[in-house]
Measured scan of single mutants.
Amino acid sequence: AIERGSKVKILRKESYWYGDVGTVASIDKSGIIYPVIVRFNKVNYNGFSGSAGGLNTNNFAEHELEVV
């Protein structure tokens, strides 16, 4: 089962992080479509409006993740 702290591989082909491994930061139990927040070591794009980097978290559905 996917739980907080799990290392997961991203299976969503259109994702910037496809094939990468991230760490589960949290799981939303409220029934939303993409409840699993995954944190990565790298950012997906340069930040804007003065922020240092881009996003390094993204929401995924459990079926888009594979525990490694």
Rank of each mutant, 00 (worst) to 15 (best):
A1D: 09
A1G: 10
A1R: 13
A1L: 12
A1V: 11
A1W: 08
A1P: 11
A1C: 15
I2T: 02
I2E: 01
I2A: 03
I2P: 06
E3V: 11
E3N: 09
E3A: 11
E3D: 08
R4T: 12
R4Q: 13
G5N: 05
S6V: 11
S6T: 13
S6R: 05
K7C: 15
K7V: 11
K7L: 13
K7H: 12
V8R: 01
V8P: 01
V8T: 02
V8A: 01
K9Q: 04
K9Y: 02
I10Y: 01
I10E: 02
I10G: 01
I10V: 11
I10W: 01
L11H: 05
L11D: 01
R12T: 07
K13F: 13
K13T: 12
K13N: 06
K13W: 10
E14A: 06
S15A: 02
S15F: 03
S15C: 14
S15I: 04
Y16C: 13
Y16Q: 04
Y16H: 05
W17S: 00
W17C: 06
W17H: 04
W17M: 02
Y18F: 12
Y18H: 04
G19C: 15
G19R: 04
G19V: 13
D20Q: 06
D20Y: 11
D20L: 13
D20W: 09
D20A: 11
D20R: 10
V21A: 01
V21L: 07
V21N: 01
V21I: 13
G22D: 01
T23C: 15
T23N: 02
T23F: 10
T23M: 07
T23K: 03
T23P: 01
T23V: 12
V24T: 00
A25Q: 14
A25E: 14
A25R: 04
A25T: 13
A25S: 08
S26I: 08
I27V: 09
I27G: 00
D28M: 08
D28C: 13
D28N: 07
D28T: 04
K29W: 11
K29E: 11
S30Y: 05
S30V: 06
S30W: 05
G31R: 07
G31Q: 13
G31M: 11
I32V: 13
I32D: 13
I32M: 12
I32A: 11
I32L: 12
I32W: 06
I33R: 12
I33P: 13
Y34K: 06
Y34Q: 08
Y34H: 12
Y34E: 07
Y34D: 07
P35N: 12
P35G: 12
V36I: 14
V36D: 00
I37W: 14
I37V: 13
I37P: 00
I37K: 14
V38K: 00
V38L: 00
V38Y: 00
R39T: 11
R39V: 14
R39E: 13
F40R: 03
F40W: 00
F40C: 09
N41P: 11
N41T: 12
N41L: 11
N41W: 08
N41C: 15
N41M: 09
K42R: 09
K42H: 08
K42M: 04
K42E: 14
K42C: 15
V43F: 14
V43N: 13
V43W: 14
Y45W: 09
N46C: 15
N46W: 10
N46G: 11
G47Q: 06
F48K: 09
F48R: 04
F48P: 15
S49Q: 14
S49K: 06
S49C: 15
S49Y: 14
S49W: 12
S49F: 13
G50P: 13
G50W: 03
G50A: 06
A52Y: 10
A52M: 10
G53P: 11
G53A: 12
G53L: 08
G54T: 06
G54C: 15
G54S: 08
G54A: 08
G54N: 06
L55Y: 12
L55E: 13
N56K: 05
N56G: 05
N56Y: 12
T57E: 13
T57R: 04
T57Q: 09
T57K: 06
T57H: 10
N58T: 09
N58L: 08
N58R: 06
N58D: 15
N59T: 07
N59P: 10
N59W: 08
F60A: 01
F60R: 00
F60N: 00
A61W: 07
A61C: 12
A61V: 02
A61N: 05
E62V: 10
E64K: 02
E64G: 00
E64F: 03
E64D: 03
L65W: 02
L65C: 06
L65I: 06
E66A: 07
E66K: 09
V67L: 13
V67P: 07
V67Y: 04
V67S: 04
V67D: 03
V68H: 03
V68M: 10
V68W: 04
V68R: 02
V68D: 02
